[in-house]
Amino acid sequence: MTTIRMVGFDADDTLWRSEDYFAAAQSTFESIVGAYVGDDARTTERLYAIEKANLAVFGYGVKGMALSMVEAAIEITESRISSSDLQRIVQMAKEMLRHPVDLLPGVREAVEQVAADYPVVLVTKGDLFHQEAKVRDSGLSHLFRRIEIVSEKDVPTYRRLLEEFAIPPEGFVMVGNSLRSDIAPVLELGGWGVHVPYHLTWEHERQADIPADAARRLRSLTHADELPGALRAIAAG
Results as ranks from 00 to 15, higher is better:
146 R>N: 14
105 P>H: 04
144 F>L: 11
113 Q>D: 13
110 A>G: 07
114 V>W: 05
146 R>P: 05
79 S>M: 09
146 R>C: 12
168 P>D: 09
130 H>F: 13
194 V>C: 10
163 E>M: 12
141 S>I: 11
126 G>V: 04
189 L>V: 03
194 V>M: 08
190 G>Y: 08
181 S>N: 09
163 E>F: 00
206 R>I: 11
193 G>K: 02
108 R>D: 09
154 D>W: 10
178 S>L: 00
171 G>S: 09
194 V>D: 07
78 E>M: 06
73 A>N: 01
76 I>A: 01
180 R>P: 00
144 F>E: 10
124 T>S: 14
69 M>S: 03
128 L>M: 15
98 R>D: 14
81 I>T: 01
163 E>W: 03
208 A>I: 04
136 R>I: 05
208 A>H: 02
98 R>S: 14
196 V>Q: 01
187 L>F: 07
168 P>E: 08
178 S>C: 05
75 E>K: 06
181 S>R: 02
187 L>I: 05
161 L>W: 05
210 I>H: 01
153 K>T: 10
172 F>G: 02
155 V>C: 08
95 E>T: 12
100 P>R: 09
79 S>Y: 11
92 M>E: 09
119 P>Y: 08
152 E>V: 15
119 P>V: 07
210 I>V: 12
120 V>E: 01
204 H>T: 09
199 H>V: 13
126 G>A: 07
130 H>E: 15
142 H>V: 13
141 S>C: 11
156 P>R: 08
108 R>H: 12
116 A>I: 07
150 V>W: 10
134 K>I: 06
115 A>M: 09
127 D>W: 11
150 V>Y: 09
116 A>H: 13
75 E>L: 07
81 I>D: 00
109 E>L: 08
171 G>V: 05
165 F>W: 13
200 L>V: 12
90 V>E: 08
182 D>H: 04
87 Q>W: 12
181 S>C: 02
210 I>L: 07
81 I>P: 01
77 T>K: 02
161 L>Q: 06
88 R>F: 08
183 I>M: 02
90 V>R: 07
94 K>T: 11
144 F>H: 10
78 E>A: 13
159 R>K: 13
192 W>A: 05
205 E>V: 08
138 S>H: 05
92 M>L: 15
127 D>C: 06
191 G>M: 07
209 D>G: 09
145 R>P: 06
85 D>F: 06
187 L>S: 00
